[in-house]
Write a protein that binds this DNA or RNA. Structure first.
Lengths: 362, 362
DNA sequence: TTGAAAGCGATACCAA
DNA sequence: TTGGTATCGCTTTCAA
């Protein structure tokens, strides 16, 4: 393993000069620098991050905490984060919480990530109290994605607005018998996204004088399989909704599948709408409210870099990316409703939603 | 930031003793250890990985190189890796190659990963020559997933066997007009999985005296969208196959979608079969050849840990996990064929394939 | 512009 | 069983 000393020897200068020359800072004569660079290249020299980190205090690593790495949404956010960070020579330390409860997390996150990272990006999970303490104590920059946490800047969409858009669209088609998928898990009732989306659904329904029927609310986890299972039971009954609004596209996939398995036509017998615009939503012809997931990751990364570069990032910074309705073939007016306002299948309509409410001040 | 010195002072011992007590190695009197532990806990002491790494030479980080980590397969493998490594206190450094060509990769992988990691796990991509050099020079353990590379142990499935299983099944149903999706990208023609699967398809077809028609071979990338686009063109013609074998489930999704969009019934007019058993394959009722993706990640992680613990891991170690046929509703005998060997839709058949050909010797 | 030397925070060897 | 100390590889004053 070649060290800075080897390079110094080869270039005939001191290690201090090598350090300065290689980092491009400070004054070093062009000729000296050239010699140093040549020697370093020759020897395949790469500075030891451990040594650099020990003296400088920074690691060039950013911890990313995610509830489920393998789910499309999270993996895509992280892709965005990684791309943004890589440009500046930072890298991602992955911390997947899958399979851990609120209680068993701390040891994982603790020594595992802290002290190895210069900052942390937290996806969609609220911090455990011990983690908050730790982060406050360490004073490292934190950015959240997908939800707001007091004291930390965030990047997200407006979950309520997104769900309102989906629900309004369903109602606008003439549906009155509307089911819902995406309840708040009782084990982690503090998850903002499930809570906000359900809230918005209920609010919009109520505002239109429509009833939210408990028996039409699928109490499933946020997976396609889970939704399919619950939806099959729903569709088995005689008294079923003409439309189901799902809080995520993956659940919507499950619902469409269950409907067809029960011999129901989508959208003829039942309409389905989701939120996300998952990578498979186009081919499955799902009407949805689109969010740019990778962009959220990129923005979070940029925010982190800004903080790392010493730019002031306000804890109240709240970057809300826009969403848009993407009408596809899984929705239609209800079979029995009057067709005063038909939206012909196949015509793609796009509606812009709220834009960025506050932009990154770099 | 509390250091080992602070703990030593608080416990009234030397730093050397603190180091020994905390790591649990060496002999330290129980009473001393207790005092040290108490002091450390009190001060929220966590050893600096940088300092530890500088002197010990190890980082407890494992680099994971992946072509696209937001794709289901890769994200799932990485989940498995992360779980295995975390148990032993190792963590994952992500290196996504997406958007990089063979030529622009080295700088990314170079200083970014090397020297920060104790080992590297490479998913499905062959190493760039410079990377091979680097890895050989550094002499760090390497494990590959998804394909074999000379000199490095691997974890994978038998791609040829998997594709043979799919193709045989299609032929066994009576199909003779069979299309294929999953060609080898010309830009990276050395990718083993695409190559092997296509090879096996061709071999099996030939062995049965069946023709592989170029116009029925979809030259698409390995995404659902790409496959859908190409498949729509295929299904637009009059002369179309009665079955399409896809080298991945995601492509199969696209093909099913395209067929239905063209008014064709699946499996009535065209059967579709894939490889993977993607998380959505069950709800989409896709017949496929199942592989345990997360297990591949876990095994790769275990292999890496074994190497790190100094156990001998042979470079020729080749761990081949079994696959199994999962029959669902996307396949049926061709409409025009004689139905001598019908496989009733809805009856799930599972066939065990080759098992692990060699197991990890720890 | 360059070099010498003092840390950064741990580990591990050698004494005690 | 414990403590002193050299050492890991680099950055960063402070002098020259």
């Amino acid at each position: 393993m070649t060290t800075i000393g080897d390079v110094a020897k080869a270039a005939g200068v001191s290690v201090a000069t090598v350090s300065r020359a290689l980092r491009g800072v400070d004054r070093v004569s062009p000729r000296t620098r050239e010699r140093v660079m040549a020697a370093a290249a020759d020897l395949h020299y790469v500075a030891s991050p451990a040594a650099t980190s020990l003296v400088s205090g920074r690691t060039r690593g950013i911890g990313v905490i995610t509830p489920y790495f393998s789910r499309w949404f999270f993996a895509t956010v992280i892709t965005g984060i990684e791309k943004a960070l890589r440009e500046e020579g930072y890298h991602v330390l992955l911390c997947d919480l899958e399979g851990h409860t609120f209680d068993t997390r701390l040891p994982i996150t603790q020594g595992m990530l802290w002290k190895r990272a210069d900052g942390v990006i937290i996806l969609n999970v609220p911090p455990e109290p011990g983690e908050r303490d730790l982060l406050d104590r360490l004073g490292m920059p934190v950015v959240t994605v997908g939800n707001r946490q007091p004291g930390w800047p965030s990047v997200r969409i407006d979950d309520q607005a997104a769900m309102a858009m989906a629900t309004e669209y369903a109602i606008g088609l003439g549906h009155t018998r509307i089911g819902y998928a995406g309840t708040v898990p009782t084990s982690v009732s503090h998850l903002q996204t499930p809570f906000d989306r359900r809230q918005a659904f209920t609010d919009v329904m109520t505002a239109h004088g429509l009833e939210v029927r408990p028996q039409w609310t699928l109490r499933c986890d946020w997976t396609a399989d889970g939704a399919a299972e619950h939806a099959e039971r729903l569709f088995a009954g005689r008294d079923r909704p003409t439309c189901v609004v799902a809080a995520s596209d993956e659940m919507a996939f499950g619902i469409m599948s269950a409907a067809r398995r029960r011999g129901l036509d989508v959208p003829g017998d039942v309409s389905v709408i989701g939120i996300d615009d998952h990578v498979h939503s186009r081919i499955l012809d799902l009407t949805t409210v689109r969010q740019d997931v990778e962009a959220q990751g990129r923005h979070a990364g940029a925010l982190m870099l800004a903080a790392l570069h010493g730019h002031e990032v306000s804890p109240s910074h709240d970057e809300v990316l826009g969403v848009e309705l993407v009408v596809r073939g899984s929705t239609a007016p209800p079979a029995t409703a009057d067709r005063a306002r038909p939206t012909p299948k196949g015509v793609k309509t796009r509606t812009r939603a709220r834009g960025v409410s506050e932009t990154l001040a770099v």
